[in-house]
């Protein structure tokens, strides 16, 4: 496979995944805040800032946010690099340049997705389309994942796309944890109330893991169970651990070294996988913010190493 095309496939996977997480975050946060149990969580400014921070790293502090503007910017504003529409555009551009390698079915689904987002009526979105648009975006991405899994050979092409998807997924999950962690703090401050905040439920719903979490713990989510579930549980398909396991699995399709070099992507991924496997939530609990930063750095480094080793054309 061409290195350039591999790079395109990797980023196609990343942008599909990114679009999904942003769309769901928008949906769940907005609608759950409407009848949130306390004033802080219902605060428009808190919700808008949370949504914007999750999508964009550069949100100015102490600026009054306009609801219509924020929603439009995140969803359909082509001038904003972080918008869903731009994610889908880039995913499709990447698919275009790898069109000969991916299945007709997958390409057709990406193309439909692109036209759906591109032709979405902006006025309708601003007035009443938020739910419809975000739900459809997440459904389109689910279809794409199905096409990726079901219509491609599970070879190097598949491995590269899955590496992109899983690195992006874990990155987005960590970003969402970060955003909701801050929201919970703002809403409830420290102490017991913080640990039992409704923001943990919202967090789980943002990553489609609420039902799984309830089934696993059989009690309402707390800070501890939520973080443990989303970071360390290997059976939760949205957890960081699960994504890293998949990354480790797919990197082995590309790297056949039994003992990968210490500066290789495979080595870093294997090492991270082993560390997470034997980590306990109690060891993280007291320093969540630091750990989040560490996770993001580690995921960034993994992507860098993959790009350097395989896409450096």
């Amino acid at each position: 496979m061409l290195a350039r095309v591999a790079n395109n496939l990797f980023w196609m996977g990343r942008y599909i995944e990114r679009a999904e997480h942003i769309a769901r975050y928008l949906n769940v946060n907005y609608f759950s805040s409407l009848d949130a149990p306390n004033e802080q969580s219902q605060s428009r400014q808190l919700v808008l800032r949370s949504m914007l921070c999750m999508a964009d790293d550069t949100v100015p502090e102490n600026v009054e946010l306009n609801e219509e503007e924020v929603l439009y910017d995140i969803a359909l504003n082509t001038d904003k690099s972080f918008s869903i529409i731009n994610c889908v555009k880039i995913a499709r551009e990447n698919a275009n340049s790898a069109r000969d390698l991916i299945s007709t079915e997958l390409y057709e689904s990406i193309n439909k997705f692109y036209h759906y987002v591109l032709n979405y009526d902006v006025d309708y979105f601003k007035n009443k389309g938020l739910y419809d648009f975000t739900v459809n975006v997440t459904e389109f991405t689910a279809i794409l994942r199905g096409k990726i899994r079901g219509t491609l050979l599970h070879d190097k092409v598949y491995a590269i796309i899955m590496l992109g998807i899983n690195i992006e997924r874990s990155t987005q999950i960590v970003r969402i944890i970060h955003a909701k962690f801050l929201d919970a703090k703002k809403a409830k401050g420290n102490g017991e109330q913080f640990k039992q905040s409704s923001e943990w439920t919202t967090l789980l719903k943002c990553v489609e893991s609420y039902d799984m979490n309830r089934r696993h713990y059989r009690q309402p989510p707390t800070k501890l169970t939520t973080l443990e579930f989303l970071i360390l549980n290997p059976f939760c398909p949205r957890s960081v651990m699960n994504s890293i396991n998949q990354v480790a699995n797919h990197i082995n399709t590309l790297s056949t070294d039994k003992y990968p070099a210490k500066d290789s992507a495979a080595y870093l991924i294997g090492k991270t996988q082993a560390e997470y496997k034997f980590k306990s939530i109690e060891s993280i609990e007291g320093e969540v913010a630091d750990f989040i930063e560490e996770m993001l750095d580690c995921l960034w480094l993994m992507a860098q190493k993959i790009e350097k080793e395989y896409f450096n054309y």
Binding site: L2, R4, V5, D100, L101, T104
Partner: peptide, 15 residues
């Protein structure tokens, strides 16, 4: 389409 129908790589000059 041609690359896909033949199962060969579609390259650009930079590849």
């Amino acid at each position: 389409y041609l690359a896909k129908s033949m199962g060969v790589e579609l390259v650009e000059g930079r590849d």
